[in-house]
Design a protein around this nucleic acid. Sequence first.
DNA 1: CTATCGTCTGATACCGGTATCAACTTTGAT
DNA 2: ATCAAAGTTGATACCGGTATCAGACGATAG
Lengths: 369, 369
Amino acid sequence: MTSDRPRPTSSPTISEVAAAAGVGRATVARSLGGYGSVSEPTRAHVLAVAARLGYRANSLARSMTTGVTKTLGVVLADIANPFFAGVLRGLSDTAKQEGYDLLVLSTDEKLAEEQAAVGLLLDKQVDGLVIASAATAGDDLSHLLAARERNTPLVLIDRLVSGFDADSVVINNREAAREAVTTMIAAGHTRIGFVWGPVTVQPAEDLGTMRSVIAGALWSDGERLSGYLDALLEAGIEFDTSLVTHVLKTEGQAARAVSGMLALAQPPTAFFTTETDATVGTLRALRTRGLRYPDDVSLLGFDDTPWAAVMDPPLTMVAQPMQEVGARAAEIVTGRIKGDDSDVVHDVLDARLVQRHSVQHRAARVLPL
Amino acid sequence: MTSDRPRPTSSPTISEVAAAAGVGRATVARSLGGYGSVSEPTRAHVLAVAARLGYRANSLARSMTTGVTKTLGVVLADIANPFFAGVLRGLSDTAKQEGYDLLVLSTDEKLAEEQAAVGLLLDKQVDGLVIASAATAGDDLSHLLAARERNTPLVLIDRLVSGFDADSVVINNREAAREAVTTMIAAGHTRIGFVWGPVTVQPAEDLGTMRSVIAGALWSDGERLSGYLDALLEAGIEFDTSLVTHVLKTEGQAARAVSGMLALAQPPTAFFTTETDATVGTLRALRTRGLRYPDDVSLLGFDDTPWAAVMDPPLTMVAQPMQEVGARAAEIVTGRIKGDDSDVVHDVLDARLVQRHSVQHRAARVLPL
DNA sequence: CTATCGTCTGATACCGGTATCAACTTTGAT
DNA sequence: ATCAAAGTTGATACCGGTATCAGACGATAG
């Protein structure tokens, strides 16, 4: 079944073209590369022969001498996640425009995978890196430092990494979350469930421990939770740790956690979800408990997807400019490759609260009682 | 602002390690590569020196001599499309397991982009290709033939290409569509809208022209439409060309086309949608017309996403094994690279009809009248 | 008729690995 | 003590490009 299939037949090389055209290798290189000087007749002849032979340059060999691969390394948590898929799309479009290809690796949020990925990409001599890092405070950052030491431009996306200052493109997570939660508070909600809080073995005991948990969490997660706390604090609402999940980030776990909160003596009247799957899990929990939004429970969450607008009723969501994150990151990294050595840039793109109808004024239900 | 930033500082080379260790290049290569024979003391010494210097092999140089890049080229229509994102995830996971990285390019369904992409990937000496081709009957297939001529294994995914027989992994689109439409017919529907039909400047005039349009359409599109026709034919329902869209494949166009159908003298009582965005567009049209499913109109469509299950009511959908498509494609292509020269494989994965509640029995509305 | 400049061209070093080969060392047997 | 075999090592060709350099040739000027 398996046997020695001929090795990929490489297309003709410069030497072969040279031989076929009866000229030296250098002349072919000059004709093709368009540098140096070649007499018009020979150039035309060489070009014709090259075309006839179907000559295509070997990018590997070229990169070998030029030191440029025209390839960008991209490290993401999960390509199938709509957010990252959108980011990748923006990255891809802009990179292509600039003449770069993308080598894409996913890490599933595991630091070890991220380190291996960066090593691999560096070994493959990528010209630049775009990373949504899984690193949190205190983690080993040697892979990022290695990139820096090699002088390979690197842009962080979606998450900042504490202890590593680099170009970055992120969302104003904290402010967006604060605004979103404030909206719910303004609608009269005081018990607001937060899905997904940072993953911990057991729930945080109080605000103090929660703050320290945040400090050790993934940046974007911490920021969103901080925004939630900001809104609560601002409104003088006491923080209840039992309203923040600490489970693994899967749709099923979200559903279970939400279900648990709904069984509380004083259940939440609204939920703030930080990701698409958290939203779906929350909706699922509502469904299995026979509850409806926005009448029984209000809903507001991150990542506006096409579906959100056609739900019944449509969901109020925080829309992240996903493609723009990717596009900006690509711009920055290609700029650095070109030699832009201006100060470190920290782009913060605004998420937009899309008001629809999943948040209901609490009075509507409180009064009738 | 832009200036001469030092070229990426390449990490130490084998020569440098050799010099630092006071041995020859070959000895270092042997120690690192683990081939040939090296005395234990020197090997240990070399390894230590290499580690101290932080030596990392340059994959480019290695690929240069070995002719192997451990990289797969992936050509998709649109990475942000949930279907392709899922496929890519499967592809990525399996490829990683086999030790391959992915160079990903998207074409937006444009043949010219596809040709350029394949050329680029071949130039970069990828070991294998996975392509969701945009080519339809009569198109220039030279890029695919070029891959074959170079002996670079290639697997087609999601779409077959007429006139080019190669390993492929696709879904049983026709049968899945037939089954889905039959479900609706069984529920008493006879006028079923089809969103998205093949893109044409004007609607097909009759079944005959529709058949020829199908022959020139993207394979998967044609198959789904054929499955729709099969179901109609089987049930003895006359085909009405005005129930098949011929618009560009955007959510907005879908919404407009569906809206148009609903304004027909005899509007459809059900819709079959072939893609996520077609489903969303259809839902949007319903919403703007103040109609509800499944009471006013039944719905059934391709691509089960997490959202579909939490819609109210939940949508009956055709679930494609997206990740599996990617995983299988990766298996096949890496197998070919390893030398598997068995017969061409044509994998057909089954889509699964997930029964939920967006298709209602027509009698429920007909009787009360 | 020779000097000088410019154009055109081939030869060649180089990138950083892999892999072959020949030479040298060590060991053990005769 | 001599020699063969095994073990170890360095030198080197090669992959397919890029880029430099110097030589060959032609034309123009003195």
